[in-house]
Nucleic acid binder design. Structure first.
Lengths: 336, 336
DNA sequence: CTGAAAGCGCTAACAC
DNA sequence: GTGTTAGCGCTTTCAG
């Protein structure tokens, strides 16, 4: 089943058949109809490989995420997959396993596969730069969620300063006076921005340095941070006086485990300690109490990422573009 | 950068260069060395598209899962991606969104992309059959986790009878006398097998029909089922007398929401009601209390799935093969 | 063992 | 507007 067969059946040359199938206007309407007819009669489907080899387009987008076990990235993958499916394109997905070496090898794999573009959530600000920069010289690349400055690519993310600001204001309005921050070490732009935003919003009075707890975007870290806060309480004046009124978490994976640990120790959430978090993942909505969390418009962000890739394919020299979306605080039981 | 360049640099023909690069033995060792040398000097990488067009191998495997938001499927995707990456292959991932029409169109997309094989977790026993059957006539297909009998493909799964049996025995050993089942309607083989196994293990005494609750593999259903059980309690003799001692859940997503709802209603877990579940997902380990759950050897299953695809490529006519792995009950706080 | 030549299936110049 | 021809880059007959 090739173009030649269709062409023969329609009584035209392969070239004309190809043009008709591609919807080129410079084809006699009558011939075009015959071709289309023959094509559907024969159940013809153009060979994707041959077309790709010829046109240098694979209709495939590559995506590399730091870890597919993180529900936020899963949401991103889901959204991108949907956008691509809508335009008959496919997603080559790779998991970097939080390792910049793995990440580099996956990026290389995808470039070599000649994907039309690459969507990357970089593992780390420093160590991801080289691979990204190299890739961006071969094809359109957009960084999603996190940004590596050294790699001059397009970017789609959300405004972490606004998000964290909303968290702090919400907690204050709810009466919180003393607020802790449990986030990730600033090895990624999001972690760094959230930390900086938090620092900008509170002073030493509201949050002493001991309550700026930094680890990783993992459940283990959430648990460890909770234990650390609880230990501080025991050393204090007793009665939980040295526990913060509220905690801002850098991600739902952290918050879920942190809440679990606090509750296991008999600390009431939200009565004794209110919790706000980031990502608004399915995870956070399932727990007791469900998490108040900052939500990002993932679908719109996915659409924008794909749009930027398409745009850059057509305008390789265009200036680097950054799209930053406004997040929104979704209030739930953890601050009820 | 093409084979011709390498060949020229090594002073041989493209054919010989190609053979040397492919490791064919029928090449003069000296020439082979020159080719390899030239290749690495020039940083040559064979064009994946051209090779695929010629050899009819894309080194890409397609995978379709019912929903990428379900952590069990994420674990499966993660495992498959790892196995493929280890053999320099890539994963084309599609999400069927629990819809058999979407599933059919994604399978079609992947077949058309000429993936070397297809790993499918079918959405439903009936409605997924046609697409699977059609696909399996074009390329190697293996069904994972769930099985559609009408589609004669290889299969990799785990023994649900053994898993559910272990759940029931564990609960009995813990002193449970009255056990409810909250699972999914038997529209998938796993749901059906788990339900049947449960029925085979308990009698009307231990579990009246009212306690066989069937919905979907979703958190919403877990919540609804919990409410239903709580409503039954109110109608009973009071004091929670009409609540089961234990509940077997068909999946962690169900269990997590069910536990949340029970606890919100003041029911102690595991003291009043013990919970066991299925999948042993990251989700279940994060909750309070963490879930006792049936664990499947996902990595081994992924390896086996890829092995079956490879095997079938070499032996298209071989008999259909089913690999069933033994699951294992992981005991945690929800039955502590 | 090696090279020349063909061809995977498609589309894009180029001529008519 | 249409057909002829060439070629994307690779591998694999087929001769030698």
């Amino acid at each position: 089943m090739t173009v030649r067969d269709v062409a023969a059946a329609a009584g035209v040359s392969p070239a004309t058949a190809s043009r008709a199938l591609a919807g080129h206007t410079s084809v006699d309407p009558e011939l075009a109809r015959r071709v289309l007819r023959a094509s559907s009669d024969l159940g013809y489907r153009a060979n994707a490989l041959a077309r790709a080899l010829r046109t240098q387009r694979t209709d495939t987008i590559g995506m590399v995420v730091p870890s597919i076990s993180n529900p936020y990235f899963v949401a991103a993958v889901e959204a991108v997959e949907q956008v691509l499916a809508d335009s008959d394109r496919a997603l080559l997905l790779c998991d970097a396993r939080e390792d910049t070496d793995v990440e580099a090898s996956r990026i290389d794999l995808l470039v070599h596969r000649m994907v039309d573009g690459l969507i990357v959530v970089p593992v780390a600000t420093d160590a991801s730069a080289a691979a990204l920069e190299h890739a961006s010289r071969q094809l359109p690349v957009v960084q999603l969620d996190r940004f590596v400055d050294a790699a001059p690519t397009d970017f789609v993310g959300s405004d972490n300063a606004v998000g964290v600001g909303a968290c702090v204001q919400h907690l204050r309005a709810r009466g919180a006076r003393r607020i802790a921050f449990v986030g990730a070490r600033p090895t990624t732009s999001t972690a760094a921005e959230r930390l900086r935003a938090f620092r900008d919003h509170v002073d030493e009075q509201e949050c002493p340095d001991a309550w700026l707890l930094l680890g990783g975007f993992t459940a283990e870290w959430g648990r460890a941070a909770a234990r650390s806060l609880l230990a501080g309480m025991e050393g204090g004046t007793g009665g939980g006086a040295d526990l913060p009124d509220a905690i801002v978490c850098g991600a739902d994976v952290i918050a879920v485990a942190l809440v679990a640990e606090l509750r296991a120790a008999g600390v009431q959430v939200p009565e004794r300690v209110a919790i706000v978090s980031y990502d608004d993942s399915t995870l956070g909505a399932l727990t007791v109490p469900p998490l108040t969390s900052v939500s990002q418009p993932v679908d719109a962000m996915a659409r924008e990422a794909v749009r930027l890739l398409d745009h850059r394919r057509d305008h390789p020299g265009a200036a680097v573009h950054k799209s930053v979306f406004p997040p929104e605080l979704v209030v739930r039981g953890s601050t009820a």
